[in-house]
């Protein structure tokens, strides 16, 4: 009785490729996966950030704002854990989008990122046109909505999203839950190993 259990246990520990999340279409016999659309925002150093900024790299995305009193401080602490874990791994970047561009100016984002003491080339804090920020939030969170009973509000849910170098969403987690972030960090490691 122990043997099948043992075999199952071994199989479960082997790293598996992460699935590609989101809606998919079949076009001319080929499967077309959901991909993050084109975007253009400005970071804490006033640099233009587009999809090209992440060419050949995976990244973790989240949505936040500086004056958030409840959820964002928890997710920022978890983003900082991810930052430190992958600090010397050039294959991964982090990107935090504000949803309050009126108050979260480039200067405010710079102050926030300096307060965390993080490298702006590794962790981009983005601001831009409000509707564009919310539109891209809808796109990132479309995959999370499929998996949850919650009726909405994902841009304030503390979700962290993992995107691969081909703009595909490969994993997500609850950024307020350290245990879920532990699992997410393993997913990131698996993705980076898969992309070697």
């Amino acid at each position: 009785m122990l043997i099948p259990f043992f075999v199952w246990g071994c199989q479960d520990t082997a790293p598996k490729d992460l699935p590609i999340l989101g809606e998919r279409d079949v076009v001319n016999g080929d499967t077309v996966y959901h991909a993050i659309p084109d975007f253009a925002f400005i970071d804490q150093d006033s640099q233009l950030v587009t999809n090209e900024t992440f060419a050949g790299k995976a990244y973790v995305a989240d949505f936040f704002f500086v004056h958030c009193p409840t959820i964002c401080p928890k997710t920022s602490a978890q983003m900082l854990r991810i930052y430190e874990h992958f600090q010397n791994d050039d294959r991964l970047m982090l990107v935090a989008h504000t949803v309050d561009p009126k108050r979260d100016t480039v200067a405010a984002l710079k102050k926030y990122s300096d307060g965390l003491g993080v490298s702006s080339s590794k962790w981009r804090f983005l601001t831009g046109e409000k509707d564009s920020l919310y539109e891209i939030a809808d796109d990132y969170f479309s995959i999370a909505m499929e998996d949850s009973e919650a009726p909405g509000g994902f841009d304030h849910s503390g979700r962290l999203i993992l995107v691969d170098k081909n703009r595909h969403i490969r994993s997500f987690c609850n950024g307020t839950d350290p245990a879920d972030v532990d699992r997410f960090i393993k997913d990131i490691e698996n993705l980076l190993n898969e992309e070697k």
């Binding site: 949803v99 409000k130 809808d138 909405g152 304030h156 849910s157």
Partner: peptide, 12 residues
């Protein structure tokens, strides 16, 4: 606060 995403969506 979680309604603010929908507030923006309705605006769009």
């Amino acid at each position: 606060m979680p309604k603010m995403g929908e507030v923006n969506r309705l605006g769009r």
